[in-house]
Write a protein that binds this DNA or RNA. Structure first.
Lengths: 213, 213
DNA sequence: TGTACATCAGTGAACGCGCGTTCACTGATGTAC
DNA sequence: TGTACATCAGTGAACGCGCGTTCACTGATGTAC
């Protein structure tokens, strides 16, 4: 398990103009390593290169340095989460409470399906030294914003329809997200904890302030 | 900042029978490094040795290997958290709701005062390869239990006094702890996030299911 | 239609570094007689 | 009271490793004429 010897993997070199494909392969391989090991320090330029089947220096044709690869990994993970959340909301139809529940369920499912990625996205440890290097503060601030926005929107929908109460929707959306995050994160870190079976519903229903009927 | 050259620091060698003192110095230095860098991968045997002012191999007189040092660090962090929580509850007097609020406030304060330590305690990344090495699964299961127990106890006190409602105190205690953890963790990771000023009270009061008056 | 050439994708060898760990050791401190 | 000796706390040099990164390069692919 986690054995690199399984993939000598003769690579076909990309044609001219298609070199950018390698960029995607690099990010995909890094995501694989993250999911398999659950440890961002296992995502090194050399391990990624081995996984892709290229020489390590080839990565420098596509990324300025190692933190840039990690940023691309985290970006793609957030993109995937956002996409999954939007898909779940669309599939849920128009009933506001069901939409919110679908959103929350989808969020938790993402974290359970990809614990290593989730932990890295929100773990804060991959964050590079911002004072130097290729990654800037601006690269990072926007990252978690979209999922929180969707949550606030769904909660607002419930409030508008009288299915939930709130004196401050943005603040309650943050509170709800914190509950989701606490559960998602801790489940990713300690899956063997004796979780109460209804813990997700308990957290969500409470923080959403659903009305009774 | 974070410059090791500042401490050449002539050490006085311990007398016979007092060698165990070095053990505490090692753990304390590791905790310092963790608090300063916020990065558990900065806690290496060599960096700890530099900080203490000893040669790296000296650590092996007191710990079997590197993961054992990390375990000792995390253990001591949990002990400190438990102690702080108990102190806060004692200082809070007998009113159950005030006791619970003091407990939650103390928990959040610990995380804000030591973000690096908090992230490491609950981040799950320092966890060594349990299949080999000196750290066993038993070493780990008990770690977060005590603070959760205190929380359940305080919540039960509120319910018994009619200051909170719950159909399942242990489960609601877990839910409350998840909210606290989500807030504590995310604040440690992203302090620059625009937190609503009353976010802590909002999370706690909601998940505690306080009764109205 | 042929050919010289620029470009592009990727390589192989090497660098210096910090790491965990091992080994045989040193020298001060206490103790048995 | 003196001294030989065991023990204890800690050391210095060395090992092999994987890492990020640099450098000069190779050879296939497309393009200008």
């Amino acid at each position: 398990m986690g054995d690199d010897t399984s993939a000598p993997h003769v690579r076909v070199r990309n044609r001219r103009g298609e070199g950018a494909r390698l960029r995607h392969e690099i990010v995909a391989a890094a995501v694989e390593l993250l999911d398999e090991t659950g440890d961002e320090s296992a995502v090194t330029l050399r391990s990624v290169a081995r996984r892709v089947g290229i020489a390590a220096p080839s990565i420098y044709r596509h990324f300025p340095d190692q933190p840039a690869v990690m940023l691309a990994v985290v970006r793609s993970a957030f993109d995937e989460l956002d996409e999954q959340l939007r898909g779940a909301m669309e599939a849920a139809g128009d009933a506001p409470r069901e939409r919110l529940m679908a959103l929350c369920g989808s969020y938790l499912r993402f974290a359970q399906a990809h614990p290593g990625r989730y932990r890295t996205m929100f773990g804060g440890l991959w964050v590079p030294d911002l004072s130097e290097g290729s990654v800037t503060e601006d690269d990072m601030v926007a990252l978690g914003q979209e999922s929180l926005r969707l949550l606030a929107e769904a909660l607002e929908g419930c409030v508008a329809a009288g299915r939930a109460v709130s004196d401050d929707v943005p603040a309650d959306a943050v509170a709800l997200w914190l509950g989701l995050h606490g559960l998602a994160h801790q489940r990713a870190v300690a899956p063997s904890f004796p979780w109460p079976p209804d813990i997700a519903e308990r957290v969500i229903a409470t923080l959403a302030h659903f009305t009774d009927e």
